[in-house]
Amino acid sequence: MAKKSSKDRLTNEINAGSMADIAFLLLIFFLVTTTIVQDKGITVKLPPWSEEEVDATKLKTRNVFSVLVNAQNQLLVRDEPANIEELKDRAKEFIMNPRGQEDLAEKPTKAIISLKNDRGTEYKTYLAVYNELKAAYNELWDEEAQRKYGTEYSDNMPTEQKRAIKGKIPFVLSEAEPTAFGDEK
């Protein structure tokens, strides 16, 4: 008797009708937990740590584009107050010096951007300033790529082309040790 019933069972198939429901359940779980949003941000290469301070005094003043941000989030560009909106264009003009002015960089390879902030500066101001300076370089690289290769500057360009562009207009941004006038207690 028992043998017979087990034989019967063999012929039975597992009901796969509920499979879809189980899969749906799992699907909904993963749908809810998934975050498709890509992590994006401004990539920065920090300089290696060294004990001694970099001496900026031996640089010619015309080659240094100094940007200071104080604890009230105000900007001082080349010793005069400035707005963040004009920062990008001024940086671009400084780097390329299209009219060969006396007080702007001799050539793009010699241009140095010096950024200094206070410990009380808000992070979003700092990042906005950094973003503008990076945008200036990105636009210059773009123009250079358009002129030379007829394409816009992108990360998937051939490495030697990228190197040629960056060799002509190197991104030099030095960050000085911040002042501590407006530090949070």
Partner: peptide, 15 residues
Amino acid sequence: LRKSNQLKVNYSAKP
């Protein structure tokens, strides 16, 4: 981070 020789940094931001 600089002292720990971790120099590649990404400041996370929204578009």
